[in-house]
Design a protein around this nucleic acid. Structure first.
Length: 137
DNA sequence: GCCAACGTTGGC
DNA sequence: GCCAACGTTGGC
């Protein structure tokens, strides 16, 4: 099992909208970056991930599960772009802000800190556990 | 709203 | 194949 982090601007696609989709899940479309796409190609059904709000909130707010492996992105005819489907699992009791991540030296190697622009990133098992704990789940 | 960092594009 | 120019993202 691998762990990931999905970044979204709340004004484009928010955690509330993801939660509302429930078990059905939603296509993580619109990614136009090779690194991010390659990460999605590596995902397997059942992999877990964090849902991160960029811009206004800058916090990890929930956890998701991959429920469909990489397939063509329905928002473009360009066959280079693929995406996975994810469904919401649970909300963190306490959102883990970027500030909190930066303040914790165990999380200093996170891609979130090192390459803030990458929208789909890998998370290590250690990071996964630490953030869940801080988040209260 | 600004700007730094980064990725992509296109001319040579 | 290099690199300058440009566009986009996201933190501040």
């Amino acid at each position: 099992m691998n762990y990931w982090l999905f970044k979204s601007e709340p004004s484009t696609w928010s955690w509330d909208q993801q939660l509302a989709k429930g078990e059905e899940g939603e296509e993580w479309d619109g990614v136009r970056n090779y690194q991010a796409r390659n990460h999605m190609r590596d995902m397997k059904i059942g992999d877990r991930g964090f849902f991160y709000h960029s811009q206004t909130e800058k916090a990890i707010v929930g956890t998701v599960e991959v429920c469909a492996e990489a397939h063509p992105d329905s928002t473009t005819d360009d066959e280079r772009w693929e995406c996975v489907d994810i469904k919401a699992i649970e909300s963190l009791k306490t959102p883990v802000t970027l500030e909190m991540v930066k303040a914790d030296e165990r999380l200093s190697e996170m891609v979130l800190v090192k390459n803030s622009r990458l929208s789909v990133q890998p998370v290590t098992e250690a990071e996964w556990k630490i953030i869940r704990k801080i988040g209260g789940i």
